[in-house]
Amino acid sequence: MATFQLDINNTKLKVEVTEGTSLLWVLREHLGLTGTKYSCGIGQCGSCMVHIDNGPMRACLLQVENFAEGQKIKTIEGLSKNGDHPVQKAWIEAQAPQCGYCQSGQIMQAVALLDANPNPTTEEIKTHMNGILCRCGTYLRIIKAVELAAASQSKIEN
């Protein structure tokens, strides 16, 4: 067991876990941040997507000790205080989810896209989102939600 200090959603949190534990278990089990989902555990589905220093990464593949040196970790819970991030709002407007299980990963991936590219084309959205699986088949609504979010963000900026 070792103690690590993690910077998660702008809060410093201490956890005591064995080295080598994946960040996904630390988030879900030790910290109760269950918005990030386990689905494959081997980097194939994107359900566990989080942001590390604003870049999207799969938490199931990350070992906790490599992310305890001040890297800024953001999970779905840290996206906004009241669930009113433009992407979250667009998701509701598009009524994107079915079961919702994959959607935290989808949203985190989409936020990262819009941060880097505020006005993506449909093709760019598909390419960027390609690694995030949805068994319910909500892909089209997700694309619509990303487009709605892009439109609303550009409105705010103008």
Binding site: G35, Y38, I92
Partner: peptide
């Protein structure tokens, strides 16, 4: 009618069995 459970899904707060503690 918009589904009432989508808000909690997009906040990562939806209560799936996998999240029950």
């Amino acid at each position: 009618v918009p589904r009432t459970d989508i808000g909690e899904m997009v906040r990562g707060q939806a209560g799936y069995i996998q999240n029950l503690r």
